[in-house]
């Protein structure tokens, strides 16, 4: 059974420093969410609260409709996998995998299958693993947790591109086989964009945007065509690329009918905005209202 997440007026302070302020957030059960934010925006703090790794300074956090803090029947169904994993480095990979069985839903057989697939050396100590293999071990433990709410916090950062791709595919396969709630916190936005159903953007300790992926893609557009024609539209570009006489620009506002007509007449193709470009725009410190 998937778990929903509800945060109401949640704040978190580290001493005098506010990490999160006035967070109200609802995540429906059974969806894949992307949690995006710049470094220090509060993504990890937010996930730590949802997983009861920390207690909020103020506010209420419900997971599956119940308070999550010190609630064994809830936290046993929630998995937050942090980059590098929360492991005893002196243990072997095998012992680390087996220690996961403290979680009721942990699937040890599946974990070993994944370990074999990702070529994890079972006899090696965790401290002797490369950053990439350590990330893989964390991901394996996260997938095999078979939790009803699984959150990956930059877990895949240490992995190389083929391993990341295999991880995303395994994550999706596991999600399709056993619908549950997934939150992916990442900086590799374009890599995961196709897997996400909804996106939450955290900026400076607050929720900046929360919408489904189509709504985000409709917040802007990508226009590709002859450079002169693109320039003639006079749009404010977030990002631009040029290849010979062809130019592609990203804009952060929906195009009105007139602009669309002029673009079409000039042979310009209009596509959805890239999530990463939009994210960069939305979290630009110099942007008004951000």
């Amino acid at each position: 059974m998937s778990l929903s997440v509800t945060l109401r007026d949640v704040s978190l302070r580290y001493g005098a420093e506010a990490a999160l302020t006035g967070i109200d957030l609802d995540l429906e059960a059974g969806k894949i969410y992307g949690l995006l934010g710049r470094n220090g925006a509060g993504k990890t703090s937010l996930l730590s609260l949802v997983a009861a790794f920390r207690k909020p300074s103020t506010g209420r956090i419900l997971v599956g409709g119940e308070p999550v803090w010190e609630n064994a029947s809830v936290v046993s169904r929630v998995a937050l996998i942090r980059e590098g994993g929360d492991f005893d480095d002196t243990e072997t990979v095998k012992a680390t995998i087996e220690s996961g069985s403290i979680r009721p839903s942990f699937d040890t057989e599946y974990a070993y299958k994944l370990a074999d697939r990702f070529e994890l050396p079972l006899k090696k100590r965790v401290s002797a693993l490369s950053r990439g293999k350590r990330s893989v071990l964390a991901a394996v433990c996260g997938l095999a947790a078979r939790a009803d709410l699984t959150m990956f916090d930059e877990v895949h950062l240490g992995m190389d591109a083929p391993t990341r791709d295999a991880f995303y595919k395994e994550l999706l396969a596991e999600y399709l086989e056993r619908p549950h709630t997934v939150v992916l916190s990442t900086h590799l936005i374009d890599e995961v964009a196709n897997y996400l159903e909804e996106v939450v953007i955290v900026d400076r300790g607050r929720i900046l945007q929360h919408a489904d992926i189509e709504a985000f893609q409709g917040m802007g557009a990508t226009l590709t065509g002859p450079a002169a024609a693109v320039d003639a539209l006079g749009l404010d570009a977030l990002a631009e690329q040029r290849l010979g006489g062809t130019k592609s620009i990203t804009v952060a506002s929906a195009l009105d009918a007139d602009t669309r007509e002029r673009a079409a007449a000039a042979g310009i193709e209009i596509g959805p905005v890239g999530l990463q470009d939009l994210f960069i725009h939305l979290t630009d410190p110099n942007r008004n209202g951000a």
């Binding site: 609630n71 936290v75 046993s76 937050l80 942090r82 929360d86 005893d88 403290i102 009721p104």
Partner: peptide, 16 residues
């Protein structure tokens, strides 16, 4: 010291 982060991350409560 060693088990605390490992066990909490594995879904155990502090009371447990």
């Amino acid at each position: 010291f060693t088990l605390l982060p490992q066990m909490i991350a594995a879904g155990l409560t502090r009371r447990e």
